[in-house]
Amino acid sequence: YSSSSVEKQFEGFRSTLEDSGKLRERIKAVAGEIESAARFMHSGLLLVHQSRPVPEVLERAKGQIEVLKGLYSNLAEILKECPGQYYRFHGEWRSETQTAVSLIVLLHWLETGDLLMHKETEAKLGLGSSEFGLDIEDYLTGVCFMSNELPRYVVNQVTAGDYDCPRKVLNFLTELHAAFRMLNLRNDLLRRKFDGMKYDLRKVEEVYYDVKIRGLTANGDPGVPRIV
């Protein structure tokens, strides 16, 4: 048995792996920028909890979407160098993308009250070409993260005097939860996140209950006598 042939073979492995290592480094750098842009956007969106005028808050956050779009285009460019290896490096931008999705979906919901669908989200991020798309499970995980923000939002909106907010959010979340239940989820992160959505739902139900039982509904639901 000859040592030198082993050595030669490993020499080849090393150079192959070094190349993909360099690619990974470049991907990581872009993922870091995505994370930072998303964080900035998150920080801006947090102002919706502080009764700042919603349109103004949304306008500033929207600016970040453009930044994100640019970064994803960089990412797609890099991945063109290694066709078919999207999922080899997926871990590098996965959680960043989930966060970005959650923010874009939240922003859209604040604007329209509707859920931004997968294809629409892809479009907002400039993705959707055949090679570099938005993974569906990442999209769904992002939607779960978005739902986590809603209980806090409801509490703060009621405090700010919007007594109809709980009902609207509850309808939205109930619908969303029912839609998710159709999915046949594996025992992974997405499943755990979806399980967490149940608590958001319950929490919003309780706020709605608090509001109703205090007779605070906007249009004076006749079924509940107003006291005080």
Binding site: L115, M117, E137, L176, N184, L185, R186
Partner: peptide, 21 residues
């Protein structure tokens, strides 16, 4: 329409995930 869009979307996601799983 929203609700039905959501439903349609999730029906697609379900198919996709089922096939992939």
């Amino acid at each position: 329409t929203t609700v039905s869009a959501m439903k349609d979307g999730f029906a697609n996601y379900t198919d996709y995930l089922n096939q992939f799983n």
